[in-house]
Write a protein that binds this DNA or RNA. Structure first.
Lengths: 350, 350
DNA sequence: TTTAGCACTTAAAGACATAGAGTGCTAATA
DNA sequence: TATTAGCACTCTATGTCTTTAAGTGCTAAA
């Protein structure tokens, strides 16, 4: 257990290191502390904190920097989230209040807001896919054996893909098939739809349509796209700023952000799911799997949308983030998201 | 005018500098030249080339590097495009032959191919917008005063946007309006459509619809999106490799690539339009406006799609590119694009 | 016109000295 | 017993100097 003074010292070393990026020496720290002690006393405490593994040195005569355990301790015991400033609040309200808000827009906006306010990179993952329903399916013939398949989901997102129709598929068959799909599957969750097009739907089509196979491929394809594509990144360009002028690290970060699946998995970690009350979780680089994230820190916040699953909003930045401001911010945005999405659904369900 | 040997020296300095990135000295060059001359002779010629402004030195006793004028001269007089290798050819054919090809897919693929084969960043701009026609317009009500507007163009690209319907707009009015739009405007070029919705269409709507204004805003909005969004970048991540480990330069490049308009303007330069036979144009960094591109080189190739305007495909990379391979490559891809798009239209027009 | 030879230039790398920031430890002090 | 002053020690960063290697320009001979 830390003495009060040791806690104060750790806290301030983290603060100063975050602000300046430089190791903190005992003399310098003496001026910054609210209590009046000599640099020698500070040195003694620093040595103890280092023994406990909470501080590191770059070399034997440098100032101290917080170790990863130091950050961990700080986050777990010392951090007090600060309130959200007036100006931040204004930005949040203003951006969220833009018109034409659909589910996916709201989710996307949240990533934009968070990255703008922090200058880091935000990732927003909408509430669980399991609840999304099929709202409609259309095929638009474009001539020359090409058709466009359009799928609309209950969250209002549209997926479209263009297909070369196999010569064997007859035009009238398509219309019939589309009608059957719409009659049978609209209103059902996408997961159910995906299951049924592998089970009973083929038989059903068989009765009316001579060539169901090519058609089902197309539908399955678009469906798959709709199921996966619910992922928004804000402030990608900010990576360029906080990746410490290290092009190699930057490169692997950018590659990570190309693979939505990997990122989504990172956000949907088991220990997050377990956490029912939606606390905000900070994971430091060494606690994360991909080597890529070693010098960074990932903060995830979950939010419940009443009866419609839970979403995740996350922020990736350097380990040396001003956590207290950022956690306050994230907490507000999470609440806002939960509220607005819940509102949306309650209107929509009427 | 250069002597034959001087030309040979310039050519080889460019080649070696492209391969090694290092300044080239007279002794080293002596081993690489196909003719047998002493290093002193080479030094003399180098000095003359430097007087002409075709070579530069980093400092008084360093080897030579090609100056910008040197590159210019090389490109204008010395360069012989090489044929496309078997393996490159295979990649090109294979990628282009993927199924489900629409205009925009073909254009997009071309950027992918070019960037993959070169490890640089490719930009592909489809044939002129002026020829794109409106193929259909739909509005899908989503409940809760929200609608999705979908616009399909003759190139098969879909634009969709979601709108909060002003409370004043009645539901039946929408359907009428959509029907009128489709009757009147389908099949017309987008530019004509854009003009007409500002001129005679409002009056026409007025007769049948009580609230034409909100509706026209929506249509205009989606239309605008369809007109601008014909721009594909391939190999964005490659920027990270050839931006010479210089994070500042990297940053401004990435910002440039966020602004499609700026880039499009860069590709549609007047001197390119003038060039009727579709020659390939190399512009070196200092010949380009934005400071950002100073150490880079932009190669643009235009291609004519019979009776359907002309497109541009371009490549951005370091000034020290292996031009002879790359220009060969670009030439092939340009031909391929022209051929495939012409084919597409001729089928489509039937 | 070409080449051999040589004096000269410069960057890069290593050796060395110095200043500055910071630490750890000891002994005195409150 | 906890704190502090004082001092020797450590390490980095910086500047200066030297050496080495690569390369040039010029001159005079072939």
């Amino acid at each position: 257990m830390l003495t009060q003074r040791q806690a104060l010292i750790l806290k301030n070393i983290i603060r100063i290191f975050t602000e300046t990026g430089q190791p903190v020496g005992s003399k310098h720290l003496m001026d910054e502390l609210p209590i009046k002690v000599s640099s020698a006393t500070i040195r003694n405490d620093m040595a103890k904190l280092e023994d406990m593994g909470l501080l590191d040195k770059m070399h034997s005569s440098s100032g101290r920097i917080p170790s990863t355990s130091g950050y961990r301790y700080y986050l777990d015991h010392l951090l007090e989230p600060s309130g959200v400033s007036q100006s931040d609040l204004a930005v949040i309200q203003q951006t969220f209040n833009k018109q034409y808000q659909m589910i996916d827009d709201i989710v996307e906006q949240s990533a934009m807001i968070l990255s703008t306010l922090t200058s880091y990179t935000a990732i927003s993952l909408g509430p669980d896919v399991s609840d999304i329903r099929l709202d409609g399916f259309r095929m638009v013939p474009l001539g020359n054996h090409q058709i466009m398949a359009i799928l609309v989901t209950s969250t209002g997102s549209i997926q479209n893909q263009i297909f070369q129709l196999p010569a064997s598929v007859a035009g009238e068959d398509l219309e019939k098939a589309v009608r059957i799909i719409n009659d049978q599957l609209v209103g059902q969750p996408l997961s159910t739809v995906a299951k049924r097009i592998r089970t009973d739907v083929p038989q059903m089509l068989m009765k009316y349509v001579t060539t169901p196979n090519g058609f089902l491929d197309i539908f399955g394809n678009v469906l798959k796209q709709a199921e996966s594509d619910r992922f928004y990144v804000g402030g990608r360009l900010n990576l360029l700023d906080f990746a410490n002028n290290d092009v190699a690290s930057l490169k692997s970060l950018y590659h990570l952000f190309e693979k939505n699946d990997d990122l989504a998995q990172l956000l949907r970690m088991p220990d997050i799911e377990r956490d029912k009350d939606g606390k905000i979780i900070v994971r430091l680089g060494n606690e994360l799997h991909p080597q890529t994230l070693h010098n960074y820190s990932l903060i995830t916040a979950t939010y419940d949308v009443h009866d419609h699953g839970r979403g995740v909003i996350a922020l990736l930045g350097p380990t040396t983030m001003p956590y207290s401001r950022i956690i306050g911010l994230l907490d507000l945005i999470r609440e806002e998201l939960a509220r607005r999405l819940t509102d949306y659904y309650s209107n929509f369900d009427d």
